[in-house]
Amino acid sequence: MKEAGRTKSGKGNMIESKDLVHEYSRRDEDGNITGIIRAIDGVDIQVKPGDFIAVLGANGSGKSTFAKHLNGLLFPTEGTLYIDGMDTSDSTNALFVRQTAGMVFQNPDNQIIANIVEEDVGFGPENMGVPTQEILKRVEESLKEVGMFEYRRHSPNRLSGGQKQRVAIAGIMAMRPKCIVLDEATAMLDPVGRKNVLGTVLRLNKKEKITIILITHYMEEVVQADYIYVMNKGKVALEGTPGEVFREEGKLEECRLTAPQITQLVRKLRKANIPIREDIFSEEELIRSLLLFKKNGR
């Protein structure tokens, strides 16, 4: 696929959305429109290449609708969305957009197409018309990157949920995207699977400089993000670094979300006059600073 000659705009951002609006119309049996639901209502988001961005939101906040726009699966009703400079509302861009921003979905079973792991990873490149030798190379590299190479000849049915999601990520990686969108990709996994998938994603972000958009309602997952957008009722209700966002307890509650347990605990400890830093997000860090306080404090 050639990319030359495509008009680019979007100020060099990986993702640039301006006043993005998406409306679903509800229809009755005869196809007449009976109501319009605004799932996304004027969203402005800019993501620089190589960033790790989290989009937080409770059910029905519009975060999944937004995710589907990033992949050209839905088109904006109003406003514009540029992915790596390409206008997603131009349907001739669709294949290029999907190649640039790969998408991992929620249900691991429903996104694996082939009966053998390596053939599933090869599905994307096959569709793009990549030559056979190059596909084999990419499949091997991608499976090694997500740590699933030894399972390449297995049937996906015998893998755990976390392993299946890693295969799905490998399937996206084999398309050589600049950006990966994870649409609640960890929601159906057990804690171990979730940790493995997040670890894989984080490594791809740091090592391969791939832009990550993590869409989730788990607060604990967004701690390592560079920047967080919190969505509520189709709008961006809150944005900032994890520290800035978690501080806004009241606003989070309005969005039907709560700060991570660690943050809540830190807040309570500080209220009880224990002088520890506010921006502690991990268990180990908290234990370390508490031990330090015990040694030096009194």
């Binding site: 979905f105 249900n107 079973d109 429903n110 197409i113 090869g122 018309g129 030559p131 056979t132 398309m175």
Partner: peptide, 25 residues
Amino acid sequence: RANDLALAMDARCYHGGDNRTKMHP
């Protein structure tokens, strides 16, 4: 499931059998 799978296939650039290559021809 079929609906989900169709979305996932779309997202991975599936557009029919034209211009498709094979991993194991």
